[in-house]
Design a protein around this nucleic acid. Sequence first.
DNA 1: ATGACTAAATACTTTAGA
Length: 277
Amino acid sequence: MKRRVPRLLPWLDQRQPDVVCLQETKLANNAFTKLLGDELSDRGYEVALNGEVQWNGVAILSRVGLNDVVVGIPGAPGFPDPEARAVAATCAGIRVHSLYVPNGRVPDSDHYQYKLAWLAALRDMVGTGPRDAIVCGDMNIAPTDADVFDPLAYADETHVTAPERAALAELQALGLHDVVRDRWPHERIFTYWDYRGGFFQKNLGMRIDLALATGPVADRVRAAWIDRLARKGTAPSDHAPVIVDLDEAPDGDAGPTVPPSSASPPRPGSVRLPQAR
DNA sequence: ATGACTAAATACTTTAGA
């Protein structure tokens, strides 16, 4: 996160998101607040944090309300102890989840089994949650071969194996829509490019950062895209932000937590800027 | 070839990422 502050703050000022989901903050909560608390509150953001000292770490920033914060996932496994990989909050009537799914490292390894069990716990939480919801973050799974620059590039490695894709499909079977792919059904779109080998310049990437919305939220999507520009320049993350623009909730369909004076529609964004790389 | 980049800890190397 420290390394990404000079990228995050101008990006917030440029894109003006109402809600931001961050992953891989790699900061304890008190260090995050010390580093960014004033800058974020000056911009009108409330913050929900689930951080730890060196690895992982997720956050939600919101300037349209931030209620009912839940840190972590009930019943999720640890490795071996619980890790800071999930935080949820209700923002303008929408249940927002910021997630950093375990990497899995090597198929069939302990970490891989952890990843699958963690995804099952995530599914259970989202499945019993509110109707209006959006699941954002680094899923560490490319949903299909079309989400990898070359299906053979990561063959037999994590992120593309059948069990991982099945776990993601089980989550989506709750009725979640992959709103970016729905808007760009045939395009070559990626959210992650390895730092090595000039992969970004060659556009050799993977689409592993997703925004998955329940039907009522998906119906409000006006635009959904990957902010490739944010992967350029000095000291970028190796992931690009995913941006989702939503229309206002339809009349009579607003949840009880929607502020009556909310003049602009919520625009949840799943962001990977803070990867301190 | 387990490499190529990048970041962070207590750190001058190791670990992790995907």
